[in-house]
């Protein structure tokens, strides 16, 4: 009897996440859909002008979507070499001692609050970039990309390291047995075997970067223009939501438009996560770990 009660309690806890997820999705749709009665979905997504508080208002979020993708792309250029590189080093070359120090240190990067990253980007990186590249302002897509890249590094590094660890010893031993060198084993056996695991790591890193809010709010400058280079200010989706939600009249068009942006952002990260899930499932089957 007692056992049954415990079972129900823990089942309830386990399903709580599901309830939260469904609740959030329902609210997102419910609050976002009214905007599409006034603005056609295609106009909303492909519109180039974001002037939500003017009369008449314009709700075109293409600059915001492109800004998010652009900054995320930049972040990937930073965190893929950093994250995957350090995972390879940790796994292949570092001794036990180095590993014992480095791995926790990299993970500490993940525990730094995003506002601290933002502050760093605003107060230190921005003036540096401004002087280095003779820019009118250091609050640019580049600044955000660098900071987000560093922020996403622990995710990519940890998960890549796990993926490398999942490659069975037998793969490596077989490779050495046929006379392959360490480098050949790494590039032709271990990395291909761990490849989909590493891809999953990179995609989860992307999810992390595209959803980040506080940091980008502080360092991107916030101009809602379509980005044409890394040296211009941009306004990613999360920035628009964070900066404007507090002041948008509840139940107004602007309010619903912000929810619609959140919905689109959610769909983007949802797709990222599904792709990551599919790849990682294949990876586990390939290595004989079961689905």
């Amino acid at each position: 009897m007692k056992e049954k009660i415990y079972k129900w309690i823990f089942a309830g806890l386990a399903f709580a996440s599901l309830i939260f997820l469904i609740g959030i999705i329902i609210i997102l749709f419910k609050e976002a859909l009214p905007i599409f009665k006034k603005v056609r979905p295609l106009e909303f997504i492909l519109g180039r002008a974001w002037y939500p508080t003017y009369s008449p208002p314009e709700f075109g979020i293409l600059p915001l979507i492109l800004a998010s993708l652009w900054v995320t792309l930049g972040a990937m250029l930073v965190c893929v070499p950093l994250g995957v590189g350090s995972a390879l080093y940790l796994h292949e070359l570092a001794g036990e001692k180095q590993r014992a120090i480095l791995k926790p240190l990299i993970e500490i990067l993940a525990s730094i609050p995003s506002i601290v990253y933002g502050f760093f980007g605003m107060a230190i990186l921005a003036p540096l970039l401004q002087n280095l590249f003779h820019l009118p302002t250091g609050l640019t897509a580049l600044n955000a990309s660098l900071i987000l890249g560093v922020m996403a590094t622990p995710t990519v590094c940890s998960l890549s390291d796990d993926a490398l660890n999942y490659v069975p010893r037998s793969f490596r031993e077989a490779s050495f047995a046929v006379g392959a060198s360490r480098w050949q084993t790494l590039t032709q056996v271990v990395i291909p075997a761990a490849g989909s695991g590493i891809s999953t790591a990179i995609i989860l890193g992307m999810s992390r970067a595209i959803g980040e809010t506080m940091t980008v709010l502080m360092v991107t400058g916030g101009a809602a223009v379509i980005p044409k280079s890394f040296f211009v200010p941009v306004r990613p989706m999360t920035v628009a939501i964070a900066a404007e939600m507090g002041e948008a009249a509840m139940g107004g068009l602007h309010y619903h438009a912000l929810f619609a942006i959140a919905l689109i952002l959610f769909l983007i990260t949802f797709i990222f996560n599904i792709i990551a899930e599919i790849i990682s499932r294949r990876f586990r089957i390939k290595l004989g770990l079961g689905a």
Binding site: W50, Y54, S55, T137, G221, G222, A223, V232, P233, A243
Partner: peptide, 12 residues
């Protein structure tokens, strides 16, 4: 009532 240029930096 006129629009701010789109590339203005918007601060919170």
């Amino acid at each position: 009532g006129e629009r701010v240029r789109a590339d203005a930096l918007m601060q919170a």
